[in-house]
Design a protein around this nucleic acid. Structure first.
Lengths: 218, 218
DNA sequence: TGCGAATGTATACCCAGTGCAGAAAAAGTC
DNA sequence: GACTTTTTCTGCACTGGGTATACATTCGCA
C-alpha cells in the first residue's frame, strides 16, 4: 500500500530532478562566465554532483547546452508525416514554420525572452556549440528524408536531395533571426521581416533558383 | 650572392618539408591503425618532430587529415566568379561538377585510387573528422554567397539561400559517391550513376521541388 | 663572424572524458 | 523492520588533446 498512484517511482523522479539540476546549474554558469571559461568540474560542484555522475547524464560538455534543442531534431519529419492527406509536404512545412514564427517558437530564432536570447548568443559565439548543433541537422535530414521517401512517393535519393535543401534553408532562416535578436532587435520588430524571408525561402524551394539560371542572374 | 634565384629561401622550404612530413606520417599511421587509435605523440615521433611543433603546424589533430580538403573550400565561389559572361552561375557549377566527375576529381568522391578510397573511408567512419569537414561547408557557403551576391545581381539573403542549397546538394552528391566507392564499387562502374544523380540534383536546384508541391508528391 | 629573429624543444600544466572498485541508496522479499 | 539484489553515485587514477613558459637551435643577413 506504499503507492496508490502509478507514478514513475522515486528512482525515476530523482533522476529527472538530477538531470534538470545539472542542466540548469550548467547554463547558469555558462551564461554568466562563458562556455569555455567554466569547467565541467565547476558545473558538477554547483549541481552538487560528482564529475563522474555528470558524465553519466550528459555524454559531453556541449550537450549540457544543446540537449535543449534535441527535441526538434525530428520535427520536420513529423510535420511531413502528420500533414493532412490533401496537403503537399512543402506546403505543410511552410505553414508550420510560419505558425512557429507567429507563436515566437524558439526554434525559429524569433523569441526574445532574455534567457532565450542569451542562449542564442552563447551558442552562436561558441564554435564548439555550433559544431554540436550540426549533428542535429544531420539527424533532421535523415528524419525528413525518410518521411518524404515514405509518404511523398519519391525515390530515396530525390528525398534526400530535397531534405538537405529544406533543412539547410530552415537553418539559414533560424540563424538569421537569432543573429538579429542577439544583436538587440525585438521579436515584434523583426516579425514582418522574418515572415517575408520565410516566404521568399519557400518560394525558392518550390520554384528553384530560376533567377540564377540566367547569365546576369536576375 | 648566396642565392641567385628568387626561391623561397631555406627557412620556407624547410617549413614546407616539415609540414608534409608531419601530414604524411600522420595519414600513414591513421590509415594503418585508425584515427582514434593513434595519438598525436605517436605522429610527432614518427615525423621526428616534437609534439609542440606538430601543434604549431596543425591547430588540431583532425586537421592532420582534413587540411587536404581545405583547398576546395573556395572552389564553388571561384567557379561562379570565373564563369564566362554569358553563362548562368548554376550552369557554370553544373558544368564544372560534371567535368570533375569525368576527370575523377577526388572532390567529387569519384576517385578510386586505393589511397584516396582509404582516406574517404576513414573520414566517413570517424565522427570527429566528419564534424571537422562541416567547417569547410560553412566556408564554402560564405564564399559562394559572396560570389553570387557580387556577380549575379541578387540580394545577399537570396544569395545565401541559394548558396546553402547548392553546397548542401554538392555535399550530398559527393558523400553518395564516396560511400559507394568506400563500399567497393569501382569509379568507372559508378560513373554513369554519378552523372545521372548530378543531373537530377541540378535539375532540382534549377526547377525547385515542384514534385513535392503536390499532395501525393509526384 | 656575429647578431637578431624566427623556429624548435622540454617540461609542466589544464581540462575533457573513461575505467574501475567500492559506497550509498532504492526496490523487491519475507 | 531486517535482508538481499540491483541500480546509481562517488572517488581515484589514467589517457590524450591542447597550451604556456622558458630555453636552445637555426636561419637570414650584414
Amino acid at each position: 500500500m506504499a503507492s496508490v498512484t502509478s507514478e514513475p517511482g522515486l528512482r525515476e523522479r530523482k533522476k529527472q530532478r538530477t538531470h534538470t539540476a545539472i542542466s540548469e546549474a550548467a547554463i547558469e554558469l555558462f551564461l554568466r562566465h562563458g562556455f569555455d571559461q567554466v569547467s565541467v568540474s565547476q558545473v558538477a560542484e554547483a549541481a552538487e554532483v560528482s564529475r563522474r555522475t555528470l558524465f553519466a547524464y550528459f555524454p559531453a560538455k556541449e550537450d549540457l547546452v544543446v540537449h535543449r534543442f534535441a527535441d526538434h531534431e525530428a520535427e520536420a519529419g513529423r510535420v511531413v508525416r502528420d500533414r493532412p492527406a490533401d496537403m503537399a509536404p512543402l506546403e505543410a512545412l511552410r505553414v508550420h514554420y510560419l505558425d512557429g514564427l507567429a507563436r515566437r517558437d524558439p526554434v525559429t530564432g524569433l523569441n526574445d525572452l532574455p534567457a532565450i536570447v542569451a542562449l542564442y548568443r552563447m551558442v552562436l559565439e561558441t564554435p564548439a556549440l555550433v559544431a554540436r548543433m550540426y549533428r542535429f541537422q544531420a539527424g533532421a535530414e535523415q528524419e525528413l528524408t525518410d518521411a518524404l521517401h515514405e509518404t511523398a512517393g519519391v525515390g530515396e535519393f530525390a528525398a534526400r536531395l530535397a531534405a538537405v535543401q529544406i533543412v539547410a534553408v530552415h537553418w539559414t532562416l533560424t540563424l538569421d533571426n537569432a543573429r538579429r535578436l542577439a544583436a538587440g532587435e525585438a521579436a515584434d520588430e523583426r516579425y514582418a521581416g522574418a515572415v517575408s524571408e520565410a516566404e521568399q525561402a519557400y518560394a525558392l524551394l518550390a520554384n528553384g533558383l530560376g533567377r540564377l539560371g540566367a547569365p546576369g542572374g536576375a
